[in-house]
Amino acid sequence: MEVGLNHYLALAAILFSLGLFAVVTKKNAVTVLMGVELILNAANINFVAFARFIDTDLDGQIIAVFVIVTAAAAAAVALAIVLNLYERLKSINLDEADSLAG
């Protein structure tokens, strides 16, 4: 059996679902951030796979690299926020961060 486009897509879908599951359900902010990373990387897999099978130029790969870079930056910012959150609440439980409630 040869590894084709569908396999990559399935893998990406599974990764995405896991990530989404973590983001929605986990109380720990760091775990949620990890979930975000999974979602982003699921997308990266799709980009690279599509670039390989559908569109043979390098656009997909380039975007994947961009995503990795921005994800790193985003993670840095997110972690800084988490640190601040911890400073304030003495906890990184997201349920307690509800000061924007209407």
């Binding site: 983001v23 997201l94 509800d98 409630a101 209407g102």
Partner: peptide
């Protein structure tokens, strides 16, 4: 309607989902 706005990011995301 304001009760919908819990301030919890995850619930927003869930709604979006």
């Amino acid at each position: 309607l304001r009760t919908l706005q819990t301030g919890n990011v995850q619930s927003y995301l869930l709604m979006a989902l």
